[in-house]
Nucleic acid binder design. Structure first.
Ligand SMILES: [Mn+2]
Ligand SMILES: [Mn+2]
Ligand SMILES: [Zn+2]
Ligand SMILES: [Zn+2]
Lengths: 158, 158
DNA sequence: ATTATTATTGAGAATCTATTGCAATAATAA
DNA sequence: TTATTATTGCAATAGATTCTCAATAATAAT
């Protein structure tokens, strides 16, 4: 079952309604595996001439979260970002301080840290969030210069 | 040299001016070792009858960051939180999803992760932010009940 | 197919918070 | 004391998100 089918099922089972607007939104979101934010998504659809109101986007996102399709990611730039969950294993992020680029990577050692902390404190650790930051290869070359290319993120980080 | 002296020095050397407002702000911030946010700090001073405008608080924080006294920590509840840097080693955080309590812990294994990622990508990693979350012992006992006690954080997490 | 029910939409208003403009004030230097 | 100008507090602004509400449209019932 792909994302769109999962969503349709969720909508149906929640007594909600499938609408063309919602279809357009999720089709766009799951077209790529990129992170996204509301504004970028909104402008993206606007450019494609299938404009959807921001209100509808804002109202669809909680549904996508509740149906387990996306989750919030925090990039500390003043607004919320989201990423895909279905078919995407948990991962960590590296953020380039030069160009804002986000790189995903997997790292099982964090689980050891979780266990260690859990044992030593008697707490239940249900998850973690790890973000590395520094400078990507391109930015190291340019030594401080701005680069605008974004690898997993179509959001322009300003 | 304590925090206040460091700050006075920084202000002087930057061609800025020491003011009673700034003194009040940093005195309050460094009175405890707690994390803090603007609103809590503002209300705290208001209660103590030494009210400072939020604008001044917002304008003082960058100075404190630039002088190496505090740094930004969380963003997850829509606004920024800060913690002390001077005299505080780098550490990670555990956040209790039940009561919002923040526990600090040190963990050198993260440095290995940094190195590993740095080598495999050819990037320069300058830092990391690791946050574990789950349930503290008290919340595990109470099984879902709310507890309001906060250990290192005077911020009420809502 | 028609009708009834009611969830959804879009536009804009409202809200909430971080930031900024500005005139008055006050810290520092001359 | 006076001049200079950084700082302050208030209010205005900006940006993200939520809400209001009348019009619309998806679904179920007939
Ligand atoms: Mn990601
Ligand atoms: Mn801390
Ligand atoms: Zn870069
Ligand atoms: Zn707890």
């Amino acid at each position: 079952m792909n994302e769109i089918e999962v969503f349709r099922k969720y909508v149906k089972e929640s007594g909600l309604r499938n609408t063309p607007e919602r279809e357009v939104i999720i089709e766009e979101i799951f077209l790529t595996h990129d992170h996204f934010d509301v504004d970028t998504l909104y402008l993206c659809l606007k450019n494609k001439k299938c404009s959807i109101s921001k209100a509808s986007i804002y109202r669809t996102i909680p549904l996508l979260i509740e149906s387990g399709l996306i989750k919030e990611v925090f990039f500390e730039d003043g607004h919320m970002h989201y990423e895909h969950v279905l078919g995407h294993e948990h991962h960590c992020h590296f953020r380039c301080l030069g160009c804002g680029k986000i790189i995903e990577f997997k790292q099982d050692e964090v689980l050891d840290i979780e266990k260690k902390f859990s044992r030593s404190h008697g707490f239940e650790v249900t998850g973690h969030k790890l973000e590395l930051f520094g400078y990507c290869r391109e930015c190291l070359k340019k030594e401080g210069k701005d680069c605008k290319v974004s690898i997993v993120d179509r959001v322009n980080p300003n």
